[in-house]
């Protein structure tokens, strides 16, 4: 205890703190931040999302460039440099989605949620803190990854690549980060709604990946009124560059995606308040 000997004025109070303690939204946010960074799985999963974004962008760019001569004219016509470099978004959304669900369902599975709700018995601050925190972390990491994927992808596409000043490029790069962020928040909401890890992940990927496929068998006249509004397709409108004519505009895509997230959070809030922990 040399530290104590050197600084005798900083004596630690033997008795616990008496000053007014109070639960605030900011403190719940800090608590969630400690919880998030003290789980090893958080780091691994986020790393997986980052690597998926960047590595896939570079890999797809390199592969396209290497096989350019062998590609048929149809493929050449279909080629679009911005989207190529951002192909990792499909993989990254798996990691982000799983982590979002786990942040909540992990607490229900272990019983931690009872400690959490004992410390913050109004409960809703916990929902907002988890959603906001994961949104912030995801957005920062995925925006950096998205930029790196873009630059890496264009580097490996070499002569077939483009620059950030190309039309739609900046929107696509930001769009990917926004899309992944909203998927993450939606996953957090699903975690609160479903409470089990398996159920939450199944529901999320059912909505993101399976539903668009099922939608393909609907009559064409129905498809155009349903498919563009599914979260994954609305997201594609947000960051996609060359879209089919039935797709929503980027702004409308963002609005629809936000609606999904708001609806998810609202349902989560109602259920969290009403249900026994």
């Amino acid at each position: 205890m040399t530290a104590v000997a050197e600084a005798p004025t900083q004596s630690r109070p033997g008795r616990p703190p008496v000053p007014a303690l109070k639960v605030t939204q900011a403190r719940v946010f800090t608590s969630e931040w400690i919880k998030m960074r003290s789980l090893r799985s958080t780091g691994f999963t986020l790393l997986a999302a980052v690597v998926a974004m960047i590595a896939l962008g570079c890999l797809v760019g390199w592969a396209t460039n290497a096989h350019w001569a062998q590609m048929d004219p149809g493929e050449h016509a279909h080629f679009e440099a911005i989207g190529r470099s951002l192909a990792g978004v499909n993989l990254a959304q798996l990691a982000i989605g799983v982590l979002g669900v786990l942040l909540v369902s992990g607490e229900y599975a272990t019983g931690m949620i009872r400690a959490t709700f004992s410390a913050a018995p109004r409960r809703l601050p916990v929902v907002w803190a988890k959603a906001a925190l994961f949104a912030a972390v995801t957005f920062v990491l995925m925006l950096i990854s998205s930029f790196l994927a873009f630059f890496g992808g264009q580097y490996f596409l070499a002569a077939h690549g483009t620059t950030l000043s190309a039309p739609h490029a900046l929107r696509a790069v930001f769009g990917v980060a926004v899309y992944l962020t909203l998927v993450g928040v939606f996953a957090v909401a699903l975690g609160f709604i479903v409470r089990s890890t398996a159920g939450g992940i199944a529901t999320l990927f059912g909505l993101l990946l399976v539903l668009p496929g099922i939608g393909q068998v609907l009559p064409a006249s129905w498809q155009q009124h349903t498919l563009p509004y599914l979260p994954s397709n609305a997201g594609a409108s947000l960051f996609g560059v060359r879209l089919d004519p039935t797709a929503l505009s980027p702004g409308a895509g963002l609005a629809v995606l936000c609606l999904w997230v708001v609806a998810g959070l609202a349902l989560a809030a109602v259920l969290v308040k009403r249900r026994d922990a």
């Binding site: 703190p17 605030t24 800090t30 608590s31 969630e32 400690i34 789980l39 931690m112 004992s118």
Partner: peptide, 26 residues
């Protein structure tokens, strides 16, 4: 509480630190 209310992957120290943070406990 009867059943353990602790995340199994988190250390005891971080568990307590997270709970303390909600109240601004030193």
């Amino acid at each position: 509480l009867e059943a353990r209310a602790v995340h199994t992957s988190r250390s005891a120290y971080n568990h307590l630190l997270a709970l303390a943070a909600t109240h601004g406990i030193a």
